[in-house]
Write a protein that binds this DNA or RNA. Sequence first.
DNA 1: AGGCGATCCTGAGGGC
DNA 2: TGCCCTCAGGATCGCC
Length: 293
Amino acid sequence: VNLPFALWSPLLPELPEVESVRHSLLPHLIGRQVARVIIGRTDIVTPPAAESHLPAHMLQGQVLQRLDRIGKQLLLHAASGQAIGIHLGMTGQCTVLRPGEQPERSDHIHMRWQLVDPARPAESSAELLFRDPRRFGELRWFACPEAVATFAARLGPDALAITGQDLFERAHSSRRAIKAVLLDQAVLAGVGNIYADEALHASHIRPRRAATRVTRAEYESLAAAIRAVLTSAVTAGGSTLRDYLDADGNRGSFAAAHRVYGRGGQPCLTCSATLKQCQVAQRTTVFCTNCQR
DNA sequence: AGGCGATCCTGAGGGC
DNA sequence: TGCCCTCAGGATCGCC
């Protein structure tokens, strides 16, 4: 079997896309050793370090043990306790290449990890690439598990499992627009512009309404909508990756069945009213003036 | 406190 | 066919 091996992540990665990337990377990374790190750019790594230190920070020589996700953050843990955070930003992509395979595009590749199976250290097992044309993404070095924990503590609970009670407690005292609160990763980790609009539409709440004015019952339906919209997107992302792996090499479309995102001026799929587009928290926002109150 | 603008960056898409 | 313009987006920072 000679399946295409490159697993590019999509544009605009939010939680579901990051989860798909995590899932697709897992079998190629876990248990492998980083034989060599090739640095394209130094300025995508946080905290900044001299180029001579970066290979070590990027886990050169270490055995990869775990790949976690919190919100939109990927956390790659080595057996040593050191870890790196991968944030895809807007256009970040992680790719795995089989030995001898060339990347589809060689521009904007900022980091490469050459991997081996520790049982057969002489031969390459695969290579992980981080590519990010717009460089809104970031690679972050953690010296120890405590540093990871400190970083994770700044993020809210993962949106995939958010409860109405939890969302209510974390959001309802804010006077900001509810959409701005949903986008705040310290409140809730993983929701971006697309799924914020989708979840607000599904729960009939206007994006600009102050979070204080959202009722307890509405927080319940909002949390349920967030879970539902993200869960179905995780499933869709998975199926898209499977499509990509079929004989055609067809990448499939990541343009999910969005009901409001990107549809300003078009009819609401629920009530046919014209969807309104505006800015909330400096983000393009689409909502239905009829369905959402 | 929180809204707002500016900042980082490139590529896609529209207009001519 | 090509050029120029605008715009998109996540996160952070500084100002009001």
